[in-house]
Nucleic acid binder design. Structure first.
Length: 424
DNA sequence: TCTCCGATTAGAC
DNA sequence: CTAACGGTCTAATCGGAGA
């Protein structure tokens, strides 16, 4: 099918998103080298430019950075997801005003379809400025005819200060495109990660240009259908559609590493009941029910000196449900079955799968299906929405301490909790 | 032989 | 001062089991 226009897809990406969220409410940190840590204060997941310059790597375990951090005064904060989610919503809403077609791709990225708009450059600067003005968030804009090229254009916008945060691939002529693609390593392409980079290198594919021009049948045979799509996207044929409505999840997982090792069954059960509550809340939020529950326990795989044990069990639920209390009984039973004395558990989790829309519930024809705790769950969700997650809990939750994750340096919930709103 | 399943791998963020 | 390494999610692929 012929297209009226070449697509102009903008990929708008927030710069150092978590760090930027923190700095919006702490302008005094504007030039301080800083990072935000993953759950349990484990790994670096967001770095300021200063921290990047000092050599802190993405995903690096924080304890490995201790000496560097001490030497240069790098500030580390725990992640504050309530803050990041709220800031994300604000940014995404503003970007959505610029087009009828938007895909919120992740917490800090959005595709915005600008096809047909006059003066893309001016429009891109306007997006940037408005987001900056209304939220304080710095963003970069990359424009291309496909998602893959828009991502690549965004990479160029981020990397080259001369671009002033905006790069439009569509505005290049063929010679300029060639020159650009020959300068960018293939590892920068969306979908090409560490392993694929190595394999491509072994086939002489070093740059984005090389991948774009690679022999199609052999590429497909060696790397599969996904790589072929990527190649076609680099050749400006859209293969990956804009997904404006996020699809329902097919699996829902709730798991966490513990703040310290857990050795006792009741503590594990306590943690699991919290995970079940979270997983079921997510399930209900998308109006689904689960037919299968899986529970897993894990010892610390990095501690080679300790005995390892990582059991996992899945069972079908008697009938699909989203009832926290029902699911909790099964989690409890599975945990009990798997638990073995003498191990130090570091992590546990719950996975709900074989999800289906709850509207299809017909009940059992022979065995009168209980209405379940639908009303109860509804009330629970409302109360937790109104008074904060954890306001109402299942009775097995919270009896035991000790498994909760470490979060030693979390900032206040500036935008989502009245008690944390800064008084100026 | 075909299909289905679970486990494994790879990637994104 | 200790001890210290994330959490979700999807899709592809492969080998074995079962029809």
């Amino acid at each position: 099918m012929a297209r009226a226009h070449v697509q102009a897809l903008a990929l708008v990406d927030c710069n150092n998103f978590y760090v930027s969220c923190e700095r919006i409410f702490r302008p005094d940190l504007a030039r301080v080298p800083m990072v935000v840590l993953s759950n349990n204060d484990g790994c670096v997941v967001s770095r300021s430019n200063e921290a990047k310059a000092l050599g802190v790597k993405m995903g690096q375990p924080w304890f490995e950075c201790q000496s560097l951090a001490k030497a240069h005064g790098i500030l580390a904060l725990s992640s504050n997801y309530a803050l990041y989610a709220d800031m994300s919503n604000r940014v995404m809403r503003i970007l959505g005003e610029f087009s009828p077609h938007q895909e919120v791709y992740s917490i800090d990225e959005s595709f915005v379809d600008l096809t047909g708009a006059p003066n893309l450059r001016a429009l891109s600067y306007a997006m940037r400025e408005r987001v900056r003005m209304w939220t304080g968030m710095p963003v970069c804009v990359g424009i291309g005819p496909t998602k893959t090229l828009a991502k690549l254009a965004n990479h160029v916008a981020k990397k080259h200060p001369r671009s002033q945060g905006v790069f439009n691939y569509n505005a290049l002529n063929d010679a300029q495109k060639t020159a650009l693609l020959k300068r960018i390593p293939v590892s920068e392409v969306w979908g090409v990660g560490r392993k694929l980079t190595q394999r491509l290198l072994a086939h002489g594919v070093e740059t984005v240009w090389d991948l774009r021009e690679a022999h199609i049948p052999s590429l497909r045979a060696e790397f599969g259908v996904v790589m072929e799509k990527t190649q076609r996207e680099l050749q400006e044929t859209p293969c990956i559609e804009l997904e404006e409505v996020p699809a329902d999840k097919q699996n829902i997982i709730a798991s966490r590493s513990f703040g310290s090792m857990v050795t006792e069954l009741p503590v594990l059960k306590d943690a699991l009941s919290t995970f079940v509550a979270n997983a079921c809340a997510k399930l209900r939020a998308q109006n689904s029910q689960a037919a299968v529950i899986q529970v897993f326990l894990q010892t610390n795989r990095f501690r080679k000196d300790l005995a390892q044990y990582s059991p996992s069990m899945a069972v079908p639920l008697p009938q699909p449900t989203h009832d926290t209390l029902v699911v909790n009984r099964w989690a409890d039973a599975l945990c009990e079955r798997m638990f073995r004395e003498g191990y130090q558990y570091k992590k546990a989790g719950v996975m709900l799968s074989e999800l289906s829309p709850v509207t299809h519930q017909q009940g059992d024809w022979l065995e009168a299906s209980p209405p379940g705790h639908s009303k109860l769950m509804q009330a629970l969700d409302h109360l937790n929405a109104r008074y904060g997650r954890g306001a109402v809990k299942v009775s097995t939750q919270g009896a035991y301490q000790g498994w909760q994750m470490r979060q030693e340096r979390k900032s206040p919930n500036y935008t989502t909790d009245w008690d944390d709103v800064p008084v100026v």
